[in-house]
Structures are given as structure tokens and as C-alpha cells.
């Protein structure tokens, strides 16, 4: 079933769409259902799907870095988002907000947003790593 032509042809497209969905869900999380945890899991499932259809090496090549590196980057980002307020004299993990005008549109930038993006990377990286390493051993269902 996993080796069928339809699956092999469609899976990159589905994965790409899923990844876009993951990013969208993560970024809208602060105001609507979504967030880093959900987005991360969706992204991980996109990579897992691609791994099943095209094999683990292809996914690893597409990712360039090891999935755990992404997770490590995410944790670093999350910690930095927590540390940033310290330099402005506030306590650890105090949220900082800024609303710059870009091309006449107000954009909300905040440390919680970067924290959530960090969560996204940790969850997607760790889960992708788990799924890929198991797929590599199991050789697919």
C-alpha cells in the first residue's frame, strides 16, 4: 500500500501543505485555536508521512540538519525569549510586546511569540527524530 504510485506522487504535495498548515496553526495560536505544540505535531506528521513514502534518507537530506538540531535550536530560542526581559530589568519570562508599523500594517511582535516558535521547533524536531529513527529500523509498515 505504501509503495503505490498514487501515494508516492501525492505525498510530497500533502507533506508540503501539511507543513504550511503547521506554520499557520503555530502563528495564529495566540488568538485562535492552535499554537506551538499542535503545530509541531502537525509538522512532525508531515515529515513522518514523507519518510514512509520516500524513505528516511530522502527526508534527512531535505531537512539538511538532524531533527534534534532543530529541537535544540527551539529550546535555545525559548530560553532566549525568557532571558530577554532580564536585560530590560524585568524578571525572567516577563512578556515584552512591541507593535511596529510595517508598510502601514501593525504587526505584533512579542517574546511569547518567539517562545511559541521555540516550542514548535522542539516538538516538531523531537517527534520527527523519533518517527524517523523508528521508520529507519522498521523499514515501513
Amino acid at each position: 500500500m505504501m509503495g503505490t504510485v498514487i501515494f508516492r506522487t501525492l505525498s510530497p504535495l500533502i507533506s508540503a501543505l501539511t507543513l504550511m498548515l503547521a506554520v499557520f496553526v503555530t502563528l495564529r495560536g495566540h488568538n485562535d485555536p492552535g499554537g506551538g505544540f499542535i503545530g509541531g505535531l502537525i509538522a512532525a506528521s508531515a515529515f513522518a508521512l514523507l519518510g514512509l513514502s520516500h524513505g528516511v534518507p530522502a527526508v534527512r537530506q531535505a531537512l539538511r540538519f538532524h531533527p534534534m538540531s532543530y529541537a535544540g535550536f527551539g529550546l535555545l530560542l525559548a530560553v532566549c525569549a525568557g532571558l530577554l526581559p532580564i536585560f530590560t530589568g524585568r524578571s525572567f519570562f516577563t512578556a515584552l510586546w512591541t507593535f511596529p508599523q510595517v508598510l502601514g500594517v501593525e504587526i505584533a511582535l512579542s517574546t511569547p511569540m518567539f517562545f511559541d516558535i521555540g516550542v514548535f521547533f522542539v516538538v516538531s524536531g523531537a517527534m520527527t527524530s523519533i518517527a524517523l529513527s523508528l521508520e529507519q529500523r522498521g523499514g515501513g509498515v
Binding site: F37, M127, I130
Partner: peptide, 17 residues
């Protein structure tokens, strides 16, 4: 619960392996 779901999943995976 949201974080608990993700953590219990990662532990489930760990124990499975």
C-alpha cells in the same frame, strides 16, 4: 492537559523503544 498529552506521548515513545 495540552502539555501533558505531548509529554505522555514522548514518554510512551521512549518506553516503546
Amino acid at each position: 492537559i495540552l502539555t501533558a498529552i505531548v509529554i505522555s506521548f514522548s514518554f510512551f515513545a521512549l518506553l516503546l523503544v
